[in-house]
Write a protein that binds this DNA or RNA. Sequence first.
DNA 1: TCACCTAACGCAAAGAGTTAGCTTTAGCGG
DNA 2: CCGCTAAAGCTAACTCTTTGCGTTAGGTGA
Lengths: 190, 190
Amino acid sequence: MKAMSRQMVRPGGRSARVQASVHAAVRELVAENGREALTVPQVAQRAGVTPSTIYRRWGDLQELLSDVAVERLRPETAPGDHGSLLSDLTSWAEQFLDEMSSPTGRAYIRDALLGDPDGGNAGQCSAYAAEQIDAVLARAAGRGERTPGTEAVIDHVVAPLMYRILFRPDGLDSAYARRLVTAVLAPAAH
Amino acid sequence: MKAMSRQMVRPGGRSARVQASVHAAVRELVAENGREALTVPQVAQRAGVTPSTIYRRWGDLQELLSDVAVERLRPETAPGDHGSLLSDLTSWAEQFLDEMSSPTGRAYIRDALLGDPDGGNAGQCSAYAAEQIDAVLARAAGRGERTPGTEAVIDHVVAPLMYRILFRPDGLDSAYARRLVTAVLAPAAH
DNA sequence: TCACCTAACGCAAAGAGTTAGCTTTAGCGG
DNA sequence: CCGCTAAAGCTAACTCTTTGCGTTAGGTGA
């Protein structure tokens, strides 16, 4: 009942076309009028489908927004190579904070968490971050650097950033991200 | 326009009575039928007010739920005294995780984050945790123990717990909470 | 204490969003 | 090429949401 959304049987079928045009319509209308003004009938009209199609496939506006948000939160580029683990991770964390702490980013995170009864979408977001960190750490290991574990970076860099983005949006800056990275790379964190 | 909700001018006025009965109605109906089935007109009827009163004061169901959630997330007891910082903080973290990671707890957290345009409710939740940690740390300092800063505990204990509760609900247990506490109290964290 | 004044609530009707039954079509499998 | 099924279209009933206006509670100043 809960819509597979991103897992269509055929990439070229009608379902896929409907999903694509609905997602596009959501992005366009949010960009134009903001999400406050977004309604299902509006999306349906822009996408060229009937409202009942959207209600049947996504259930409600929240789940549709969650679906769209996860796609937007997927990182499109691999983390850059700056020659060392410290600079790679610092750069990644700064970019992560920058993207996620913007009003748009926060809105996407909240949407992703929101219409997500089974936690699948939220887990996907976390998996994206873990992948990126894995890549950075693997590259560093390839250079012969000693690296913390992925979980340690998630606990001590990603989690504090995300916690503050969600619960205390004030006073966040890239210096804070840098502090977290240097702390997790300090030899103390055996 | 955004409803002060918890800050009524007078505790005994009509506004306060309406708020109390509406909050009570929400809690009762969620307990009875689950939040999926909850609607504003339903709450209004149970509370003995008209729907327009609720719409005017809270805007929509999400903001009302957020409001109720924050009240439920307020800790009602001070952190226990177990004789040492390690045991106080461990005990607090275990209890925090236990309450927050339950389906009910996660739902409240999500509700609090959800209908919260200005971030005020989320900030309140974070403030509750900070207060409790402050109390634990102050007591330890009174004993002469060396303590990390409140912010360090938030970054390295509360944030990882909350991150996993929200984004990766699987595989959370009190051992993980204990590990976080011992790590933040290790002398390495100068 | 009393009369005023404002903010909040009740009421009701209009407007918008949501749901559901039934029909039609696209696209896969035989 | 012909059925078969899942998904989409259509439409009507239903519920929720919004809004204007009148009323009331309760705070305020004389």
